[in-house]
Simulated assay, not measured.
Amino acid sequence: MSSGAAGLAWFKSSYSGSDGDSCVEVAVAEQAVHVRDSKDVSRPAFTVGREGWRDFVRFVPER
């Protein structure tokens, strides 16, 4: 699902390296979480519901 993501507060994970490669940025909104490629922010972000994001991060291993 894509979304217009203007005006959102984007952030990178604290696990992202300083090299800037292979990173995503996330913006949390009231009803959804938006995700985009940090190397090319002009490309459309995708949006997932907060419940779907919660389920996703539940299965992502911690470093």
Results as ranks from 00 to 15, higher is better:
32 A>E: 11
33 V>M: 04
52 G>A: 07
16 S>T: 15
8 L>Y: 11
28 V>F: 10
32 A>P: 00
17 G>M: 13
49 G>K: 09
61 P>M: 12
45 A>V: 04
11 F>E: 11
20 G>D: 08
30 E>I: 13
47 T>H: 01
25 E>A: 01
7 G>R: 05
62 E>K: 12
27 A>M: 13
34 H>S: 04
26 V>K: 07
60 V>H: 05
42 S>H: 09
45 A>C: 04
24 V>Y: 04
59 F>S: 06
63 R>S: 15
40 D>Y: 08
48 V>W: 00
31 Q>V: 10
21 D>N: 14
33 V>H: 03
53 W>E: 13
62 E>V: 09
4 G>V: 05
13 S>Q: 08
11 F>R: 15
49 G>T: 13
11 F>M: 10
53 W>D: 09
21 D>I: 09
53 W>N: 11
11 F>N: 08
41 V>H: 01
29 A>E: 13
58 R>T: 14
34 H>I: 03
33 V>P: 07
43 R>E: 04
41 V>C: 03
18 S>Q: 05
28 V>D: 07
55 D>K: 05
48 V>G: 02
16 S>M: 09
2 S>R: 10
30 E>S: 07
62 E>S: 15
8 L>K: 10
4 G>M: 02
42 S>T: 15
21 D>E: 14
4 G>P: 06
13 S>K: 02
25 E>N: 01
5 A>E: 11
30 E>R: 10
52 G>L: 02
53 W>G: 10
3 S>M: 05
6 A>D: 09
26 V>P: 03
58 R>N: 09
55 D>N: 02
2 S>A: 07
34 H>M: 07
